[in-house]
């Protein structure tokens, strides 16, 4: 297209890199220092997770009786998993289902809203755009705790505390997701493409779903994964909103078990806490492994131009 298109005001776009994936620098020599450092930082990042994996295979007695970083004679992983899932009438399964509910509606909804909003900010001119941007950036800086009391009061006035809505509705708003989708949309969708669709008489929403959405794939995956992490691991919001253990997500439930294991009178269920912790993180780890190509390039979009 030869006609110069006018650039709309918006976020500065990223310099387009020749290849979308993170490329690596070719090192002329392998330095000893670097190899040593690699070992050290990888040890630091992986040993705690290895500990979790190893200790999920131990019985309650072996947990304290054997060296933490190696397996004991008993291999009780299967047994531990069964006990975790069935303990206290299968409350863990209930918490897992709650968490899935919050993630599907909360993170899914947040991604949808962020995609729509980010696309609008990147591709349409309308008054009030600057104001929206200011509010979004401001929202990133505000401590959640500062908003906790008023939000709690608002929800309790509406009679929504102690219900799933109190967790789902605030999760729908993701300032960082919106920002990421904005940067991503302005970079991934050429204006010419939208113009062409409009000239052909396509309606805006059709254009959005048929033309733009497929181009936003990696961005959407990144925002979805990050919102999933946020919602799946959300602790503070459910902590202030929920009293009824039947609506707990995994985080609150596990913490309740942990507290029970720490008190003298309670039944010691440390092995269940550990196995439960392992079960809690496996789905996210699998998701990140399978989609590593997308998020590793998607996450960079928001930061390169900062």
């Amino acid at each position: 297209m030869a006609t110069p298109t006018t650039r709309r005001p918006g976020p500065p776009t990223i310099r387009r890199r020749p290849e979308p994936r993170l490329s690596t620098l070719r090192r002329p020599r392998r330095s000893l220092l670097l190899t040593g450092l690699t070992g050290l930082v990888l040890l630091y990042s992986l040993v705690p997770l290895a500990w979790l994996l190893i200790n999920a295979t131990k019985t309650q007695e072996d947990l304290l009786g054997s060296f933490g970083l190696w397996f004991s004679d008993s291999f009780a992983l299967g047994d531990n998993i069964v006990r975790t899932l069935t303990y206290d009438d299968g409350i863990f399964t209930r918490w897992l289902l709650n968490t899935i509910l919050y993630v599907v509606l909360g993170a899914g909804g947040a991604t949808l809203l962020a995609t729509l909003g980010g696309y609008a900010l990147a591709k349409f001119d309308f008054p009030g755009k600057r104001a929206v941007f200011a509010v979004v950036i401001g929202a990133v800086a505000v401590p959640n705790t500062a908003l906790a009391v008023p939000t709690f009061l608002m929800f309790s006035r509406l009679g929504l505390t102690d219900s799933p809505w109190a967790v789902i509705i605030p999760s729908l708003i993701s300032p960082f997701g919106l920002y990421l989708m904005w940067v991503f949309s302005s970079d991934a969708i050429p204006d010419e493409l939208l113009e062409a669709a409009r000239v052909d008489g396509a309606r805006e929403f059709t254009t959005f779903f048929r033309v733009s959405l497929p181009l936003l794939g990696p961005g959407i995956v990144t925002v979805l994964l990050l919102s999933m992490v946020q919602t799946w691991n959300n602790y503070f919001l459910p902590l202030i909103m929920l009293k009824d253990p039947d609506w707990y997500p995994l985080t609150l439930g596990l913490n309740a078990w942990n507290a029970q294991a720490a008190t003298a009178g309670g039944e010691t269920v440390f092995n269940l806490v550990i196995t439960g912790s392992l079960l809690t993180i496996v789905p996210l780890i699998v998701a990140f492994l399978l989609l590593q190509r997308y998020w590793q390039s998607g996450l960079t979009a928001g930061s390169v131009k900062a």
Binding site: S45, W232, N233, L254, N258, I281
Partner: peptide, 16 residues
Amino acid sequence: AAFFPYVTSLVAVAVV
């Protein structure tokens, strides 16, 4: 793998 800790649930982090 280096990103795993960020994904790990808080309660699991604290327990470990």
